[in-house]
Design a protein around this nucleic acid. Structure first.
Length: 336
DNA sequence: AAATAGTACAACCGCGGTTGT
DNA sequence: GACAACCGCGGTTGTACTATT
């Protein structure tokens, strides 16, 4: 697809010969697009560095991959996001943070770049306006999810273990596993929350099922005073892995490893959820729902009950919270 | 009509993870 | 195990377009 930028001046400082090894930078031409398209048709996706070798296209592999992924691959959906898409982005962002590629997988035809651009422009606009990042209703949903987070501090018996890191981040009592979510006494009984409790129960089941496995396979270093590994034990790398602070994911779940809560938000039937291969669940504190500290009125009661991220760090870039199911690890970086 | 500000979007860069040698 | 190449992701930047003054 040729865009306006394809026919415009290249970015300043880039252009023919601007890159290393005589590689071209800047906007793609239709001719370049055609070469790349032909190559992919013949050889399929991947092996992007071979494009230059085999076609003579003066583009690096990264550039080819990006061009293909964002503009040339079939079934791309261009144009503004629909309200439904926007809402899904908001909810998923509230759940998993700046995981654009992952968010985009739930938006058919949309690229991570589109989602990212959408978010960044929206973020700037709302920040400038002093508004809450999330609309009140979405904020409320996220807050509820957060308030009823899968209990990462539960010990092997499902009892909540106090965390010195989360302080007053109190987790509500888990509804009895035999109790239908709708019967839970929580004042919010939306289908979303009902599903959430179903998932909680499912998670609890996983926790019990995999507990024995953990004890056989966990490294001794993970153990565990009240389920918490002391911070500072793992070596501190130079750059934390980008695990969004609010992310909860079942590592190595069969079928792609999408998080359970993510599935929950998407309304996936719990029986279709992937089963974990490992007993490892990574999670972090949810991000602050507010930017700029300005609440949108009636929802301040929802957000104000949550303390800031541990240590007052940027919830997206601060210390990471790594959870084994039934255990909790805090580290400055997730080290897989 | 011109200038300015804001928005949208394409593309680059740096980094980390994975895979192959 | 060490190293290099490749790949993918997220952050950032630059430019065109649009709205506003």
């Amino acid at each position: 697809m040729a865009t306006a930028m394809d026919t415009t001046m290249p970015r300043s400082g880039v252009g023919e010969g601007g890159g290393g090894g005589g590689l071209k930078k800047g906007p793609w031409t239709q001719a370049e697009d055609q070469v790349l398209l032909d190559h992919v048709r013949r050889h399929g996706e991947g092996n992007w560095n071979a494009v230059r070798r085999e076609t003579g296209l003066q583009r690096c592999g990264k550039s080819c991959r990006l061009r293909w992924a964002n503009h040339l691959r079939p079934n791309l959906r261009k144009g503004p996001f629909s309200p439904e898409e926007e809402r899904l982005i908001l909810r998923l962002h509230g759940l998993i943070g700046n995981k654009w590629a992952r968010i985009s997988t739930h938006l058919p035809g949309r690229t991570d770049n589109e989602v990212k651009n959408f978010w960044n422009t929206r973020l700037k606009r709302r920040q400038r306006a002093g508004q809450s990042l999330y609309p009140p209703d979405v904020e409320r949903e996220i807050a509820l999810m957060r308030a009823q987070n899968i209990n990462p501090f539960a010990d092997a018996d499902g009892n909540t273990v106090a965390s010195p890191f989360l302080g007053p981040f109190a987790l509500p009592p888990r509804p009895p596993s035999s109790t239908k979510p709708a019967s839970h006494s929580h004042s919010h009984s939306s289908p979303l929350i009902n599903q959430h409790y179903q998932l909680l129960n499912q998670m609890q089941g996983m926790q019990m099922r995999h507990h024995a496995v953990q004890h056989h396979h966990q490294q001794p270093a993970f153990h565990h005073h009240g389920g918490i590994r002391s911070p500072g034990l793992p070596p501190l790398p130079t750059r934390p892995r980008e695990l969004p602070s609010n992310q909860i994911e079942m590592a190595s779940c069969s079928g792609g490893g999408d998080g359970l809560l993510e599935a929950l938000l998407l309304g996936v039937d719990e029986h279709q959820l992937p089963r974990p291969n490992h007993a490892v669940c990574r999670a972090g504190s949810m991000p602050d729902l507010m930017y700029g500290g300005v609440s949108s009125g009636s929802d301040s009661d929802v957000t104000s009950q949550f303390p800031p991220a541990p240590g007052g760090q940027d919830p997206h870039h601060g210390g990471k919270w790594d959870f084994l199911v039934g255990q909790c690890i805090h580290s400055s970086r997730f080290s897989s």
